[in-house]
Nucleic acid binder design. Structure first.
Lengths: 166, 166
DNA sequence: AGTTTCTTTCAATATTTTTTGAAAGTTTAG
DNA sequence: CTAAACTTTCAAAAAATATTGAAAGAAACT
């Protein structure tokens, strides 16, 4: 396989994998494209490479910046904006983990705390409180571990994990 | 908040959170419903409770069984099938982690291994190989940790993590 | 065998999500 | 200030995904 083919395969596959996930195909493709390009790319470059509209490029770049995975860059004397991706894989993982916690775990915890807190003593309600309470407890613990791991690379926990990660 | 209200809120919210995720709303709702019901439920019960069609119920129950999160149960002398959810939260988490690894991580690893393995020495290709190679290495390590954690609750790693999880 | 009871499948339909492209907005230059 | 160069927004269109319901399947009973 030659470079051009591999590059294309990576961008296309990343898009498809993204959908499998819950990430919009174009967003995943833009991310893939920026991750592998040394130079920052303009919106024009991205539209051209991925054959997408200006609106689509603009909105998905905004989305990627909200995740903290893509930055705007300004070239001296140029009006046009350029974009580049966070390339350090560990930093990427930390950003994704933090954002997922904020968007997906925290809202679930809010609901679980609320509904598991009801005071009622018929057997049905008791099973309900037990199950939602256990869900709450587990998710909170998992979220805490994630937080500790991402907060700094040099906690005891992270050092220990790093040994396994090598 | 009384029980009926909390129960309803949980089912509806779990559905909405599921969509946020990448899980079909109905599937998440069925899962929520089964998690909190002591008794196994029939397809009829589920259709009634969630106001959905038979086909929808059937397909999403199949999906949940594929994840290993829901089981079929047979009541003695009854022809009708009943369904119940895995209620142990840790077992649930293990099943979800395993399935996600199989469906989402493994296919990504396959692609990354393939594209990062090209032999070419122009500078563009080198940056490509470096970046996809780093992605591959990180994801493989993360997948290994996940595997070790889920494989048994009593490895050194898991014991250590459990302390943090309390 | 036929009948009843229940489940699965799948083409048609409905809903949701994504994408487009042109208008409106913004910023810099002259 | 106006024009030029660029970005964002958003209503309409397209594409993808989920849902329905009726027909086909399957299993148990008579």
């Amino acid at each position: 396989m030659e470079y051009a083919e591999a590059r294309n395969k990576f961008i296309q596959s990343w898009g498809a994998l993204g959908s499998q996930w819950g990430i919009n195909k174009t967003m995943a493709q833009i991310h893939a494209l920026l991750m592998i390009s040394e130079q920052p790319l303009s919106m024009e470059d991205i539209m051209e490479e991925l054959q997408i509209s200006r609106g689509n490029a603009s909105m998905n770049l905004r989305g990627l910046m909200d995740w903290g995975l893509v930055y705007k860059e300004f070239k001296a004397g140029e009006r046009r904006e350029y974009f580049s991706a966070e390339k350090n894989v560990e930093d990427m993982a930390v950003k994704i983990a933090r954002e997922r916690s904020k968007r997906e775990i925290k809202p679930a915890l809010r609901i679980l705390k609320e509904v598991s807190g009801i005071k009622e003593n018929n057997p049905e309600a008791q099973q309900f409180v037990k199950q939602t309470g256990e869900l709450y407890a587990f998710m909170e613990k998992a979220d805490n571990v994630l937080d500790k791991v991402t907060r700094q690379k040099d906690t005891l926990l992270s050092k220990f994990l790093m040994k396994f990660l090598r």
